[in-house]
Amino acid sequence: MIFGHDTEAGLQAAVALVNSAGEPDALTTVQAVDAWYAEHRYTGRRDRDEVELEELRALRPVLRDLLTTDRDHAAELVNDMLAEAGALPQLVRHGDEDWHLHAIDADAPLARRVVVETAMAVVDVVRLDEMSRLSVCADESCQGVVLDLTRNRSRRFCTTACANRNAVAAYRARKSR
């Protein structure tokens, strides 16, 4: 594990949210938010309405900027996000999760909690000088964000589909020679 479990979970959730903006858009219904929320084990308040859906959809470009920028700009964005949200980091334990950081009340709107949890995760990425763990998919037809948690920093594609498409293209290129 490169980062703490809460950092990795926050980064994975943010990357999934950002990448949901691809073609086709995977975040168009409240039920899609339900699935994302459950998959990434979020806890706390859920309004389950169109307003919450639209707030999450509006976060995607903001989080994309945070996850794909350079270290210094990421630090500035994190500071702004945490200050704007009035974040107050606290150690919490709930469910089967051991002690980890939450920096905003569980009753805050989901979109605000996502911003704060992502910002808190990026704090660790910046402090450990690991921004290279975040990149844009190597598939030229894709703009997905890649979170590379591999030991040897070998992940280049956002999904298996992108990796497979490029492997097939490379194979065909070799065969045509």
Rank of each mutant, 00 (worst) to 15 (best):
S154V: 08
D96G: 15
T68D: 12
A58S: 13
E23D: 10
A13G: 08
G44M: 05
D105C: 08
L101E: 14
V114S: 13
L53R: 01
N19M: 05
S20Q: 06
D139Q: 02
Q143C: 03
R57D: 03
H40W: 05
T118D: 15
D139C: 03
V122H: 02
C137K: 11
V116W: 03
R156Y: 01
A167W: 02
G22E: 12
E50R: 15
T69A: 14
R155Y: 00
A87K: 03
H100F: 09
R165N: 02
Q31K: 04
T29Q: 07
L128M: 14
E23V: 13
R46K: 12
A169D: 07
D70E: 13
H94N: 10
A121Y: 06
A21V: 05
G44V: 02
T159P: 11
T160W: 01
W36F: 04
V122P: 04
E23S: 14
D80C: 04
L56T: 02
R45M: 09
R45W: 03
E39A: 14
R156V: 00
T159F: 06
R127I: 00
D34L: 06
A111W: 06
V15F: 04
V62P: 03
T160S: 13
L77H: 12
T7R: 11
R93N: 10
V30W: 11
N79L: 07
L110K: 06
P109T: 05
V125P: 06
V62D: 14
A163I: 01
A163G: 09
N166P: 02
Y171A: 10
L101W: 09
H5K: 12
S132K: 11
E52G: 11
A167E: 06
H102M: 05
E54G: 04
L88F: 04
T7Q: 07
R113W: 09
R45N: 08
A170W: 01
S176P: 00
D47Q: 14
P61H: 09
L110F: 15
E140L: 10
L67N: 09
R71F: 04
C137Y: 09
E97M: 07
T68V: 12
K175Y: 00
N152E: 05
A13R: 04
E130D: 11
L59N: 08
R151I: 01
D65N: 10
A108Q: 12
D47C: 03
D96S: 13
T160Y: 02
H94M: 10
E50Q: 13
R174I: 01
P109E: 08
T150A: 12
Q143R: 15
G22M: 06
V126P: 13
